[in-house]
């Protein structure tokens, strides 16, 4: 009994300590961010790793989500005889929610985990310490460019996800189920608002980008520099990012689309 309590207490203390270190990391990284923008070469390299290499999974997932939305949306809407509204259902659910959220979740699994593992490995092989000894600040040279790349990548990936999804819904609805092509687009055009939906969706994915990059980089930077430590940190990245994204999504949805 006591040992259970003891372990629980230790776990709580450990999480508090991690939260504290996370905050310290955040404060240390902030001043390193602006100067990293002056070295686009480093950011471009990271855009490749985080963005280009995530394209495949994002496009495929977006297409399938669109197809499923098309099928499900049609079967519900058809019972009310308003299958023409299929476009709106597909587009709004993608642009407002599924695009930013699913992209962020996929990003955590595909790119966030890779970031953590890379940084953890650099730490455990003394590469970060080596840089420090060469008078190079790893926060500026390694962490900041990755952070920027993550923040830039996320809205672009989310936009691609949503767009591909809308086409997926189109393929099912118009191509297979006989919804009128003009109605599909005209309904979208008349119902999807630029500020309420598109801008808010982009804002969401920007916030998710910040959160995902921050968590992944922190876990890598903070990990215990051993094989096991790196693997644990990678797992934590995926779990924590997913939770953070879902939580933030709830908060932002409540604020943006005020009910």
């Amino acid at each position: 009994m006591l040992s259970v309590l003891g372990r629980l207490g230790r776990a709580v203390l450990e999480s508090l300590a991690r939260l504290g270190r996370w905050f310290v990391f955040m404060l240390a990284l902030l001043p390193a961010l602006p100067s990293a923008l002056l070295r686009p070469r480093l950011i471009v390299d990271q855009l490749y790793h985080l963005g280009v290499l995530s394209l495949q999974i994002i496009l495929v997932a977006g297409a399938f989500v669109g197809l499923v939305l098309g099928l499900q949306g049609y079967s519900i809407l058809a019972t009310y005889g308003s299958a023409e509204s299929l476009g709106v259902v597909v587009a709004l659910s993608l642009v407002r929610e599924l695009g930013p959220v699913l992209t962020a979740l996929l990003f955590a699994g595909r790119a966030g985990s890779a970031l953590t593992a890379e940084l953890g490995l650099m730490k455990s092989t003394e590469q970060l310490a080596g840089m420090e000894m060469m008078a190079v600040d790893p926060l500026k040279r390694v962490v900041a460019p990755r952070f920027w790349a993550g923040v830039i990548t996320m809205p672009l990936l989310a936009a691609l996800f949503s767009l591909v999804g809308v086409f997926g819904g189109y393929a099912i609805g118009v191509g297979l189920l006989g919804v009128d092509s003009g109605s599909y687009w005209s309904q979208i055009q008349s119902q999807v608002d630029f500020f309420d939906d598109i801008v808010n969706g982009v804002l969401k994915s920007l916030v998710f980008g910040v959160a995902a990059a921050w968590i992944a980089l922190f876990e890598g930077y903070d990990c215990v520099p051993t094989a096991e430590g790196v693997s644990r940190a990678t797992t934590r990245t995926v779990v924590n990012t997913s939770l953070a994204v879902l939580g933030l999504d709830f908060i932002m949805t409540a604020l943006m689309f005020d009910v």
Partner: peptide
């Protein structure tokens, strides 16, 4: 990648 992403944003 950036061009595609921006194009997608514009279309949206």
């Amino acid at each position: 990648f950036v061009a595609l992403g921006l194009a997608a944003l514009t279309l949206l």
